[in-house]
């Protein structure tokens, strides 16, 4: 069991042992008007897992992730994070939970007015009373971890998209979170850097005992890091769980929707284009 980082205001908390349920989603529904983006989603994530949520564009992966980090209130259902239902929490209570996880945003979400080093130091300065010299050392360690040693004084605008992503990951790991949430951490990265980021995700789970919840549609990356996979559907199965299981179970699952996605085939049940009759009706109107 790892030692929890010293944080101001976090109070006493339960440290989850490997295999214990750390995140549980029950009957989650997220609707925008009449459109159900997430439809009765239920799953559990156990401590120490690398849980990957995958699915095609527009299937609700990012919406689900936003619900999990408390950035969005779901229409109905519950999300138990560290054993507490975050859907019923006010912003003040939610902050207590947020101190225990890190979030790696799709495009880094770095503060443009701060240097790379200041970006990584921000959560440390706000949530710990650690001395500045120690913070500087932690920043250097985190930058080394993501292969950006010596970039402390660069501004985010001076970095490439991939480098920004890695700084975002370093910032998410700054407080040694119990859960690392990642939104498309490898999209837009070259194969070597994809492997580096995958290794980092694995390191953060296997070496320091954290749990990772990753949203991705990069199949190579998914099968490299996942201990369990959740596949969300779109089209007629919009926002529903198509399959859930270990990478091996997902590979063997005969669901044609799932297999089309895993193999990256253009033809299959995933509706990208309208059927001929439907298309004619759309062009000519119902009459």
């Amino acid at each position: 069991m790892r030692e929890a980082p010293r944080k101001i205001g976090s109070g006493p908390k339960k440290i989850f042992k490997a295999g214990e349920i750390i995140l549980e989603v029950r009957d989650l529904v997220q609707a925008f008007g009449d459109r159900r983006v997430l439809d009765n989603i239920s799953f559990q994530v156990r401590a120490g897992e690398t849980f990957v949520i995958m699915g095609g564009s527009g299937c609700g992966k990012t919406t689900l992730l936003r619900c999990l980090i408390g950035a969005q209130k779901p229409t109905s259902g519950s999300i138990h994070l560290f054993g507490e239902d975050i859907t019923r929490m006010d912003p003040f209570e939610l902050d207590r939970i947020r101190l225990r996880f890190g979030m790696n945003f799709q495009f880094g979400a770095l503060f443009q007015s701060l240097t790379v080093g200041e970006n990584i130091a921000l959560p440390l300065r706000h949530h710990s009373d650690v001395d500045s010299s120690i913070i500087e050392m932690i920043v250097k360690m985190k930058l080394e971890l993501v292969g950006l040693t010596g970039f402390e004084n660069f501004m985010p605008s001076e970095l490439s998209g991939g480098m920004r992503k890695r700084v975002g990951l370093a910032r998410a790991l700054a407080l040694d979170p119990e859960i690392l949430f990642s939104d498309e951490p490898t999209s837009g990265l070259d194969p070597v850097m994809t492997a580096v980021v995958d290794q980092l995700t694995l390191d953060s789970t296997r070496k320091i005992g954290a749990t990772a919840v990753v949203v991705s549609h990069d199949m190579t990356s998914v099968f490299r890091i996942a201990t369990r996979i959740l596949m969300l559907g779109n089209g007629p199965r919009q926002g529903q769980i198509v399959a859930e299981g270990t990478p091996e179970e997902i590979r063997k699952n005969p669901d044609p929707f799932l297999q089309q996605f895993v193999r990256g085939e253009a033809d299959g049940p995933i509706p990208l284009r309208m059927a001929q009759d439907e298309y004619l009706k759309h062009l000519l109107g119902d009459g």
Binding site: I69, A71, L94, D95, L99, F105, L110, Q112, H126, H127
Partner: peptide
């Protein structure tokens, strides 16, 4: 950036 701040508590 605003959302990142909120998520970092």
């Amino acid at each position: 950036e605003i959302e990142a701040l909120k998520v970092m508590a």
